[in-house]
Nucleic acid binder design. Structure first.
Lengths: 241, 241
DNA sequence: CAGTCACTTCCGTCAGATGGAAGTCACTTG
DNA sequence: CAAGTGACTTCCATCTGACGGAAGTGACTG
């Protein structure tokens, strides 16, 4: 007899990870929370994590004890505030926030478009800081998301020094069909690529005028942040288009 | 022979929690990361968590597999990017961000002081959103931190409807000796207190002028956000000082 | 070159994680 | 209103897999 499959979300890949089983399962439970789904009932959570309800209940109890999970009086489970705290500790451990946020604020204020900062992570890149455009039509992206290297403006920008790509990198609908973006790497005191800063614009309003406005803004902030971090912006100047 | 006690941080309360042991210990390992200490070596981590090194190593391996821990090539462990992701999912699950951040931006821009938003959590309150003052001298506070109810401007503001405290709440050096703050609750569509919004100012520059400037700003944003959330601001107006 | 320290691997033992079964409670259906 | 359903919880006997001591590796120091 076929399974009913009443719920929309399919049993999302029980995680290919190995290790201490109980911990493994607890982490799968945490990662079962996606996007902005509200409180989840035990049944749904154990289904998503592929766990026996008894086991899920026990693990959730432990997670709750540390504030990783919040149990609502009305029933249902949500992520807990400890994650807010640790997410913030993580950000601060990058020791970039102090330089990045003011730069993103300037970019957004002067361009009226969304500004973001990515760091490289192995063969991926991850959005670590982001400010949304003040305009009503804007692209949607979330802090913490990982994306491929080499594709998209930030993806190219993070490897621009290796590939000799002219800076700033400008893409139109490359990774996402309806988005254009401008990005430039930022160097640290060791001359390494600390990250990539840039602006993204819905493609329909990315004309010559907005490009002419944003290109120097992105370069300016990349060079300024490189200096702030004690780095030498010469390699960026050298690749300037 | 007395232990050398080479490290500054004392074995920080091995956590009074109970539950599935392996999970319990893994979570203690995560919470062993404090503030902005950089990469921690295995020895230090197992010491802080009160774990056998073998056990800590095994648990860290599992945590790494899910991106909760990042192991640096140069040795040492850091928090991982999954925490960034889940911290953000947590924020979005409150379904407040969209209304809170623009309000905080207006408050900061018009007052040139730090703005923050707190939510109630049982008999505590927690800072969920915050924007730092653009000025050089400012108070330091971190998103995610929990503080007592009933003390401090936000602590009083969150219970103002129960206690009949005039709004906005203004405190000078109440919870922190060198900080003044102004706060007002925000109501949701159910008439419940959704949180508290406000401004904090170093006490030395909190004079009559800045108070006269900030008080109406805080009230204006609390009332506007209450309306945004579909709530009725009448109870706030009624308590207006 | 011996000594120390940080980290890792191995493996026998047994604490404790697991999940089936049964109980509770709130709703729905006939 | 009784029987049925489904979400959640408790209990407990079984046996898996987490644990940590011991030994190994490799880098650095005096």
């Amino acid at each position: 007899m076929a399974k009913p499959a009443l719920h929309e979300v399919p049993p999302p890949a029980p995680a290919p990870v190995e290790g201490v089983r109980a911990v493994d399962r607890a982490l799968v439970l945490l990662r079962a929370f996606r996007d902005d789904d509200g409180p989840l009932p035990l049944t749904e959570l154990s289904r998503r994590a592929g766990l026996n309800m008894t086991t899920a209940l026990r693990l959730l109890g432990t997670l709750e004890g540390h504030g990783f999970i919040k149990r609502l009086p009305s029933g249902g489970y949500m992520l807990g505030a400890t994650l807010l705290l640790l997410g913030d500790v993580f950000k601060r451990s990058l020791r970039l926030e102090h330089h990045v946020m003011p730069a993103l604020e300037r970019l957004r204020a002067e361009s009226r478009e969304s500004a973001a900062f990515f760091v490289r992570e192995g063969d991926q890149r991850r959005c670590v800081f982001r400010l949304d455009s003040p305009q009503i039509v804007r692209d949607i992206a979330h802090v913490g998301e990982a994306q491929p290297l080499g594709r998209g403006a930030h993806g190219r920008s993070l490897v621009a020094l290796e590939t000799g790509t002219p800076l700033p990198v400008v893409t139109r609908g490359e990774r996402l069909p309806q988005i254009a973006a401008i990005a430039c790497p930022v160097l640290n005191a060791a001359g390494e690529v600390a990250g990539s800063i840039g602006i993204s614009v819905p493609l329909y309003r990315f004309d010559a005028e907005i490009e002419a406005l944003c290109t120097p803004l992105v370069m300016r902030e990349a060079i300024a942040m490189t200096r702030d971090l004690g780095g030498d912006p010469t390699p960026l100047e050298r690749l300037r288009r």
